[in-house]
Protein backbone atom coordinates (compact mmCIF):
# COMPACT_ATOMS: atom_id res chain seq x y z
CA UNK A 1 0.00 0.00 0.00
CA UNK A 2 1.26 3.44 -0.84
CA UNK A 3 2.11 6.06 1.69
CA UNK A 4 -0.89 8.27 2.23
CA UNK A 5 -0.85 12.00 1.76
CA UNK A 6 -2.87 14.42 3.87
CA UNK A 7 -5.23 16.76 2.11
CA UNK A 8 -8.36 18.75 2.66
CA UNK A 9 -11.34 19.23 0.46
CA UNK A 10 -14.70 20.94 0.79
CA UNK A 11 -17.65 18.93 -0.41
CA UNK A 12 -21.13 20.39 -0.60
CA UNK A 13 -20.07 23.07 1.84
CA UNK A 14 -18.45 20.79 4.37
CA UNK A 15 -14.68 20.73 4.81
CA UNK A 16 -13.00 17.36 5.18
CA UNK A 17 -9.44 16.56 6.18
CA UNK A 18 -8.23 13.17 5.13
CA UNK A 19 -5.19 11.21 4.07
CA UNK A 20 -5.32 9.48 0.72
CA UNK A 21 -3.40 6.90 -1.22
CA UNK A 22 -2.07 8.88 -4.23
CA UNK A 23 -3.91 6.41 -6.44
CA UNK A 24 -7.29 7.40 -5.05
CA UNK A 25 -9.50 9.22 -7.52
CA UNK A 26 -11.66 12.09 -6.45
CA UNK A 27 -14.66 9.86 -7.15
CA UNK A 28 -13.42 7.10 -4.87
CA UNK A 29 -12.46 9.63 -2.22
CA UNK A 30 -15.98 11.01 -2.29
CA UNK A 31 -17.74 7.67 -2.31
CA UNK A 32 -15.53 5.40 -0.26
CA UNK A 33 -13.81 7.79 2.11
CA UNK A 34 -16.23 10.65 2.63
CA UNK A 35 -19.35 8.57 1.99
CA UNK A 36 -20.70 11.10 -0.43
CA UNK A 37 -22.35 8.69 -2.84
CA UNK A 38 -24.22 11.23 -4.95
CA UNK A 39 -21.53 11.04 -7.66
CA UNK A 40 -21.86 7.68 -9.40
CA UNK A 41 -19.34 5.34 -10.98
CA UNK A 42 -20.66 4.38 -14.37
CA UNK A 43 -17.45 3.54 -16.21
CA UNK A 44 -14.49 4.89 -14.20
CA UNK A 45 -12.76 5.85 -17.45
CA UNK A 46 -14.21 9.19 -18.44
CA UNK A 47 -16.57 7.72 -20.99
CA UNK A 48 -20.01 8.19 -19.44
CA UNK A 49 -20.25 11.32 -17.27
CA UNK A 50 -22.05 9.72 -14.31
CA UNK A 51 -19.33 10.96 -11.94
CA UNK A 52 -19.62 14.59 -12.99
CA UNK A 53 -19.20 17.12 -10.17
CA UNK A 54 -18.54 20.82 -10.06
CA UNK A 55 -14.90 21.32 -9.07
CA UNK A 56 -14.19 24.91 -8.14
CA UNK A 57 -17.23 25.84 -10.19
CA UNK A 58 -16.50 23.87 -13.36
CA UNK A 59 -17.95 20.56 -14.40
CA UNK A 60 -15.35 17.80 -14.40
CA UNK A 61 -15.17 14.03 -14.26
CA UNK A 62 -14.26 12.95 -10.76
CA UNK A 63 -13.20 9.48 -11.96
CA UNK A 64 -10.29 10.91 -13.96
CA UNK A 65 -9.20 13.28 -11.22
CA UNK A 66 -6.69 12.27 -8.59
CA UNK A 67 -7.90 13.36 -5.20
CA UNK A 68 -4.44 14.32 -4.03
CA UNK A 69 -4.08 16.75 -6.91
CA UNK A 70 -7.16 18.66 -5.75
CA UNK A 71 -6.04 19.48 -2.24
CA UNK A 72 -7.85 22.59 -1.04
CA UNK A 73 -10.50 22.57 -3.72
CA UNK A 74 -14.27 22.88 -3.49
CA UNK A 75 -16.55 20.19 -4.82
CA UNK A 76 -20.29 20.46 -5.33
CA UNK A 77 -22.34 17.38 -6.10
CA UNK A 78 -25.98 17.17 -7.10
CA UNK A 79 -26.89 17.00 -3.43
CA UNK A 80 -25.08 20.25 -2.72
CA UNK A 81 -26.83 22.33 -5.34
CA UNK A 82 -29.87 23.03 -3.19
CA UNK A 83 -29.99 26.23 -1.19
CA UNK A 84 -32.15 27.45 1.66
CA UNK A 85 -34.60 28.54 -1.00
CA UNK A 86 -35.05 24.97 -2.13
CA UNK A 87 -33.86 22.85 -4.98
CA UNK A 88 -31.67 24.29 -7.71
CA UNK A 89 -33.66 25.38 -10.79
CA UNK A 90 -31.95 22.69 -12.87
CA UNK A 91 -32.88 20.06 -10.31
CA UNK A 92 -36.45 21.33 -10.30
CA UNK A 93 -36.56 21.19 -14.06
CA UNK A 94 -35.35 17.58 -14.13
CA UNK A 95 -38.22 16.70 -11.82
CA UNK A 96 -40.75 18.67 -13.80
CA UNK A 97 -39.78 17.19 -17.17
CA UNK A 98 -39.27 13.62 -15.98
CA UNK A 99 -35.72 13.96 -17.27
CA UNK A 100 -34.56 10.70 -15.72
CA UNK A 101 -35.73 7.14 -15.32
CA UNK A 102 -33.45 4.83 -13.35
CA UNK A 103 -31.76 7.91 -11.89
CA UNK A 104 -28.23 6.56 -11.84
CA UNK A 105 -26.76 9.03 -14.32
CA UNK A 106 -28.97 11.83 -13.04
CA UNK A 107 -26.73 13.48 -10.42
CA UNK A 108 -24.00 13.70 -13.05
CA UNK A 109 -26.44 14.98 -15.65
CA UNK A 110 -27.60 17.72 -13.31
CA UNK A 111 -24.11 18.84 -12.35
CA UNK A 112 -23.20 18.79 -16.01
CA UNK A 113 -26.25 20.85 -16.91
CA UNK A 114 -25.41 23.44 -14.27
CA UNK A 115 -21.91 23.67 -15.68
CA UNK A 116 -23.09 23.75 -19.27
CA UNK A 117 -25.56 26.57 -18.63
CA UNK A 118 -22.82 28.56 -16.96
CA UNK A 119 -20.43 27.95 -19.86
CA UNK A 120 -23.04 29.15 -22.33
CA UNK A 121 -23.71 32.25 -20.26
CA UNK A 122 -20.01 33.00 -20.40
CA UNK A 123 -20.23 32.85 -24.18
CA UNK A 124 -18.30 29.63 -24.63
CA UNK A 125 -19.11 28.08 -28.00
CA UNK A 126 -19.76 24.43 -28.77
CA UNK A 127 -19.24 22.16 -31.75
CA UNK A 128 -22.65 23.10 -33.10
CA UNK A 129 -22.34 26.85 -32.64
CA UNK A 130 -22.81 28.08 -36.19
CA UNK A 131 -20.89 31.32 -35.79
CA UNK A 132 -17.87 30.83 -33.56
CA UNK A 133 -17.49 34.55 -33.07
CA UNK A 134 -21.16 35.25 -32.40
CA UNK A 135 -23.46 34.99 -29.44
CA UNK A 136 -24.35 31.63 -27.99
CA UNK A 137 -28.04 30.81 -27.97
CA UNK A 138 -28.79 27.78 -25.88
CA UNK A 139 -31.30 26.09 -28.15
CA UNK A 140 -32.09 22.37 -28.18
CA UNK A 141 -29.30 21.49 -30.58
CA UNK A 142 -26.77 23.36 -28.45
CA UNK A 143 -28.02 21.72 -25.28
CA UNK A 144 -27.90 18.23 -26.76
CA UNK A 145 -24.32 18.74 -27.90
CA UNK A 146 -23.23 20.25 -24.59
CA UNK A 147 -24.88 17.43 -22.64
CA UNK A 148 -23.44 14.66 -24.79
CA UNK A 149 -20.72 13.88 -22.29
CA UNK A 150 -23.39 12.38 -20.08
CA UNK A 151 -24.69 9.09 -21.36
CA UNK A 152 -28.15 7.99 -20.27
CA UNK A 153 -28.95 4.39 -21.10
CA UNK A 154 -32.61 4.84 -20.21
CA UNK A 155 -32.31 7.47 -22.94
CA UNK A 156 -34.16 10.28 -21.23
CA UNK A 157 -32.38 12.63 -23.62
CA UNK A 158 -35.45 14.34 -25.04
CA UNK A 159 -36.63 15.26 -21.57
CA UNK A 160 -33.14 16.19 -20.39
CA UNK A 161 -32.90 18.71 -23.20
CA UNK A 162 -36.32 20.10 -22.30
CA UNK A 163 -35.35 20.41 -18.66
CA UNK A 164 -32.08 22.17 -19.41
CA UNK A 165 -33.75 24.43 -21.92
CA UNK A 166 -36.29 25.53 -19.39
CA UNK A 167 -33.80 25.92 -16.57
CA UNK A 168 -31.40 27.86 -18.78
CA UNK A 169 -34.00 30.37 -19.76
CA UNK A 170 -35.20 30.86 -16.22
CA UNK A 171 -38.63 29.48 -16.80
CA UNK A 172 -38.34 26.14 -15.09
CA UNK A 173 -41.75 25.31 -13.72
CA UNK A 174 -41.97 24.39 -10.09
CA UNK A 175 -43.37 20.96 -10.84
CA UNK A 176 -46.54 22.64 -12.00
CA UNK A 177 -46.68 20.98 -15.37
CA UNK A 178 -47.27 17.67 -13.71
CA UNK A 179 -49.63 16.69 -11.03
CA UNK A 180 -47.54 16.86 -7.90
CA UNK A 181 -47.17 13.80 -5.78
CA UNK A 182 -47.62 14.37 -2.07
Amino acid sequence: MSTTIPMSITVDGERHDLAVDPRTTLLDALRERLRVTTAKKGCDHGQCGACTVLLDGRRVLSCLTLAVAKDGSHVVTADGLATDDGLHPVTEAFLAYDAYQCGFCTPGQICSAVGAIDEARRGMPSAVTADLTGEVTLDRTEIAERMSGNLCRCAAYVNIVSAVEDAAHGTAPRSSTLEAQA
Binding site: R31, R35, T37, T38, A39, K40, K41, T77, A78, D79, L81, A82, L87, T91, F94, L95, D98, Y100, G103, F104, T106, P107, I110, S175, L178, E179, A180, Q181
Partner: peptide, 24 residues
Amino acid sequence: GASVRRIEGPDKVTGTATYAGDTV
Protein backbone atom coordinates in the same frame (compact mmCIF):
# COMPACT_ATOMS: atom_id res chain seq x y z
CA GLY B 1 -53.95 7.82 -16.69
CA ALA B 2 -52.68 10.83 -14.75
CA SER B 3 -49.13 12.05 -14.97
CA VAL B 4 -48.23 11.52 -11.35
CA ARG B 5 -44.62 12.52 -10.76
CA ARG B 6 -42.11 9.82 -9.89
CA ILE B 7 -42.40 9.22 -6.17
CA GLU B 8 -38.66 8.78 -5.69
CA GLY B 9 -37.91 11.75 -7.95
CA PRO B 10 -36.50 14.09 -5.30
CA ASP B 11 -34.10 11.39 -4.13
CA LYS B 12 -32.92 10.67 -7.63
CA VAL B 13 -32.34 14.25 -8.70
CA THR B 14 -30.35 15.05 -5.59
CA GLY B 15 -28.38 11.82 -5.82
CA THR B 16 -29.52 10.64 -2.42
CA ALA B 17 -31.41 7.61 -3.75
CA THR B 18 -29.34 4.62 -2.65
CA TYR B 19 -28.30 2.02 -5.21
CA ALA B 20 -26.61 -1.26 -4.35
CA GLY B 21 -23.19 0.37 -4.14
CA ASP B 22 -24.31 3.34 -2.09
CA THR B 23 -24.66 1.66 1.27
CA VAL B 24 -22.18 3.03 3.74
